[in-house]
Design a protein around this nucleic acid. Structure first.
Length: 499
RNA sequence: GGCGCUAUAGUCUAUCGGUUAGGACGCGGCCCUUUCAAGGCUGAGAGACGGGUUCGACUCCCGUUAGCGCUACCA
């Protein structure tokens, strides 16, 4: 049987380096076995999924040099490759489960579920669905449906016995069924949850090997149950370790830039990033750690994956990237890379436009615009002094602007300005006072070209990183402060300002 | 709290019962050099802890500890 693997990103945000890592593993495994690699979009979360995110994720993975044999952008015989376009398929499959008694309709309200969990927590038992609707009679179910009561479809989980997952990397993992929750498979709006869609698609798309993040281990028994319920063979499965921050927590954008786009914007070469990620699953031969994609594919081995979550060590990435820069490119090639990075016509046009009225000589351009060609800025703490805001106000400002940066939908000057104005209103600052520290954090100077346009051009990731560094520079924020300040943004609109 | 996963230097790793525990990043020193890099040489630095199994454990088993993950009508 031909090996088929997949990467199944959820288009709910920036393309994560963890996704790139998992994608690379799946790609290498498939290619090494002469198999096929599929990309599927898991957009069953209607609230968070966006087309913009999907585009950016595909683009980022392509930029890294990964190519898939089937996917939403390239088509293929098992499409559609976007779960939102396969709703009828999940519907039919949910129906099958309902009919063969491996799933049931649950009419419990969110309120009741919450109360149930609270009570379970109080009794110190693991929160899980108590199975109330499992004992509904056919008549009761029919009556509820006739009364148009909203319902979800849940998986029937055995009360006794245990499940064994054979993990390719970890060996058998045993779970007591009693500890497995009766997972929702179909939400009340009729959309499937990840669990249903994932299993149905992996089967229908002929996936032979599922290699996914470690965070899915505890869902595996539910998936096993689903394969059984459908009478399908379960693919071979492997859970990859999670990439970590320097403090060993799961890699998160609070502590590290996690977006592939950030690394692109910082000027890392895609082949260096791919190589770096590959080092977690491909052993160097004779100490040589520089390997291109075909080499990674050739030398890849599941048994080479260390299970301790590897820290994403930027210093090593820097070293590798430097080697690619100096060892794989001649000067004309370097120039071409630089052009593609930030010296293309449109970028230059945009920043020249911002600078034009502010220069007396062309030579003023360098100091004025250098921040457009930099990564982190290395602004000293003293630079933030001298404005109207005190240290605490500046920390609060940075926390809130950072939060709003994530909330901005379309990253353009208008939206960014609106976001910052929102912060200013909520924290009762003056825009003029608040904008100064942001200027310094983003451009390195309190006098510069227009801020919102600059932020738009620099891109969300770089801006976020500069703000993050700035926040650390001025003293950082505790978790409690962050939470308290963020509540300002979550609070309802002040009376009178409701649109 | 419950369940699960993991555990070699600061970091990434090699070792798959017998090695002076090897390499790389980072860090220190020296050389080269108009500076800085790059490059060469070199130094410090590791098997979490406690029990077993074995002639012999970093390696196998158990426990402890620690870290991480999951514990949603999110993925």
């Amino acid at each position: 049987m031909k090996v088929r693997t997949r990467i199944a990103p959820s288009p709910t945000g920036d393309p994560h380096v963890g996704t790139a890592y998992v994608a690379l593993v799946n790609y290498c495994f498939a290619k090494q076995h002469g198999g096929e690699f599929v990309l599927r979009i898991e957009d069953t979360d209607r609230n968070r999924s966006t087309a913009a995110s999907e585009n950016v994720i595909l683009e980022a993975l392509h930029w890294l040099g990964l190519a898939w044999d089937e996917g939403p952008d390239v088509g293929g015989p098992h499409g559609p490759y976007r779960q939102s376009e396969r709703l009828d398929i999940y519907d039919a499959h949910a129906q099958t489960l309902l009919e063969n008694g491996t799933a049931f309709k649950c009419f419990c309200t969110p309120d009741r579920l919450e109360e149930m969990r609270r009570e379970q927590r109080a009794r110190n038992v693991p929160p899980a669905y108590d199975g109330r609707c499992l004992s509904l009679t056919q008549a009761e179910i029919a009556a509820n449906v006739a009364a148009d009561l909203p319902f979800v479809v849940r998986l029937v989980v055995p009360r006794e016995g245990s499940a064994t997952i054979d993990d390719l990397l970890r060996g058998p993992i045993v779970f007591e069924w009693s500890a497995v929750d009766m997972q929702v498979l179909v939400k009340s709006d009729g959309w499937p949850t990840y669990h249903l869609a994932n299993v149905v698609d992996d089967h229908l798309m002929g996936i032979t090997h599922v290699m996914r993040g470690e965070e899915w281990i505890s869902s595996a028994p539910k998936h096993l149950l689903l394969y059984r319920a459908f009478g399908w063979e379960m693919p071979k499965i492997a859970h990859l370790p999670l990439l970590r921050n320097a403090d060993r927590s799961k890699l998160s954008k609070r502590k590290n830039p996690t977006s592939i786009l950030f690394y692109k914007r910082m000027g890392y070469l895609p082949e260096a990033l791919a190589n770096f990620l590959g080092l977690f699953s491909v052993p160097p031969v004779d100490g040589e750690e520089m390997m291109d994609l075909p080499t990674l594919v050739a030398r890849f081995g599941l048994d080479h994956i260390s299970l301790g979550g590897p820290v994403f060590d930027v210093a090593k990435l820097d070293w590798l990237n430097a080697r690619y820069l100096r060892e794989t490119l001649d000067v004309p090639q370097l120039v071409a890379r630089v052009r593609a990075w930030a010296f293309d016509e449109s970028y230059l046009t945009a920043i020249a436009g911002l600078a034009q009225k502010r220069i007396e000589r062309l030579s003023d351009l360098g100091p004025l615009l250098s921040f457009f060609f930099a990564g982190r800025l290395d602004v000293p703490r003293a630079a933030y002094e001298g404005g109207k805001l005190d240290g605490d106000a500046i920390r609060k400002l940075f926390v809130l602007v950072l939060a709003e940066c994530d909330a901005v939908g379309d990253w353009n000057a208008t939206e960014i300005e609106a976001a910052i104005r929102r912060v200013v209103e909520r924290s009762e600052m003056k825009l003029r006072d608040a904008v100064r520290p942001v200027y310094i954090a983003v451009s390195g100077s309190a006098q510069s070209v227009p801020l919102f346009e600059s932020m738009a051009l620099l891109g969300r990731d770089l801006v976020r990183e500069r703000l993050r560094v700035a926040l650390e520079t001025v003293g950082g924020a505790t978790k409690a402060e962050t939470e308290a300040w963020r509540k300002l943004l979550a609070a309802p609109e002040p009376i009178g300002s409701v649109a």
